[in-house]
Structures are given as C-alpha cells and as structure tokens.
C-alpha cells in the first residue's frame, strides 16, 4: 500500500515538474531543451497524469499487497533528475565545456562549406553565428552584428578574442560551439566569459593553416545572457 502511494507521488511529482517547466520555467528550459520539443513535455504530463489516475484507482486493490521494501531505492532514483534541476538552474556551460565540445583545436578547424546557392545577406539586426557560418561569403566585407560569449584563448594574438555560442540540435547535451574571432583596437581590453553585442566588419582570419571568420570591431557592449542562449538548428 505504502509503495503504491509512493508511486503515485513519483508520477505526480514528475507531472508537476514537467508541466511547470514549459509553463513557468521557460528561462530554465531554454538552456536545456530545443523549443521545438517543448510540446513533448506537455505530452509527457498528460501520460503521467493518466498513469497517476490509474494508480489511484487501483489503490484499494493494492491495500493488502505485501510490503516491497526493495523497491524504495528504485523510486528514489526516479526522483533524482528534479533534484539535480536545482543545480542545473544556476549552471552554465563555460570555457572548459567549449574546449571539450569543439573540434577546436585550431589545427582541426575547417570552416563549413555551404553547398546551396547563398541567399543575400540579411544585415537588419543581429546575425546568428549559425547563419553566418552557413553563408559566409554573403557577409564578407559587410558590417555585421553578433551576440556571443567571449573566451580568452592564449593561442590568439593579444588584441583578438574568441567569441562563441552553442548550436543546439535537440538538447544541451548535443550542443556544439560555433565561434568567430573579434579583433579589437590596440590598448583596449575585452573581458573573457562575458556576453557581448559586437558590431564590426567581417573578414576571414587566415593563419596557422586555418581560416576563421573574424569581426574587426566597430563598437561593442556587454549585455545580459539572451533569453535563448543557444542557437537553434
């Protein structure tokens, strides 16, 4: 009986958690799951609610079932993800994640090649790095605005900083970083691990056998983390 009640608590807990995320926790969910998949959570809430209702209905039948104490850890394991959510809310991918996720060793880097005919560059407002990468020729020599996160890299010249953003396919676990270089003036400084809104002229940085998009800075400001920090495929 007690284990049956515990199962109902687990199902209801999961339903509340998954329902809360797309309805009230969108800022947190945006850092975990692609918005195209948010409907899945609501579908899961419906299934969980149905399962909980059926479990409730069968409670009276289960009243005389023997105690199954060895099932308790299994139920506790099912509750671990909502507990880790408390940590995940405050957590962010940082430079260390960038180093692990990118094929980034500059030696390995190849700019992506578009096989489709390039559409005209859209310069009205921020250009996502994914758009820039998909159509780099259209933006070369033009004034471009980007929003990205800076990263100190000692391999780079003194007045060049790397600026990156993650591209999400389905969820944060499969996100891969895209980056450009930002070249700034002598005597200026750019802080690492900060979100910036940068505007400048796009060119290609060639050196060390690699070619990377580079923004020669016109103006830049530090900004808050965007509501959707990941680029979306």
């Amino acid at each position: 009986m007690v284990i049956a009640v515990a199962k109902i608590v687990v199902l209801a807990g999961w339903a509340l958690f998954l329902g809360w995320l797309p309805l009230f926790g969108q800022a947190d969910l945006a850092r975990l799951l692609h918005p195209d998949l948010w409907w899945l959570l609501l579908a899961a809430v419906v299934v969980l609610a149905l399962l909980a209702a059926v479990q409730c209905r069968s409670l009276s039948r289960l009243r005389h079932q023997p105690s199954t104490w060895w099932q308790w850890p299994s139920l506790a394991i099912l509750l671990l993800p909502p507990l880790f959510f408390l940590q995940a809310r405050e957590a962010r991918f940082d430079g260390e994640t960038f180093a692990k996720r990118s094929l980034a060793s500059l030696e390995a880097y190849r700019p992506p090649q578009s096989t489709e005919e390039a559409p005209a560059a859209d310069l009205s407002g921020e250009v996502p790095l994914s758009t820039l990468y998909g159509n780099i020729d259209a933006y070369l020599g033009k004034e471009v605005e980007v929003v990205c996160q800076t990263l100190d890299n000692r391999q780079l010249p003194e007045n060049v900083v790397m600026c990156y953003r993650y591209l999400m396919n389905c969820c944060a676990a499969d996100a891969m970083p895209l980056f450009i270089f930002i070249r700034y003036g002598e005597g200026e400084a750019v802080e690492g691990e900060r979100w910036v809104h940068a505007r400048g002229t796009l060119s290609l940085h060639r050196g060390g056998g690699v070619t990377v998009p580079q923004l020669t800075l016109g103006r830049m400001s530090y900004v808050e983390e965007p509501a959707f920090p990941f680029l979306l495929r």
Binding site: F85, A88, A91, F93
Partner: peptide
Amino acid sequence: DNIAINFL
C-alpha cells in the same frame, strides 16, 4: 554544473 545540465 556541466553534469547537471547534461543530465537534465
């Protein structure tokens, strides 16, 4: 932090 994000 990294583990928590990936896990969730």
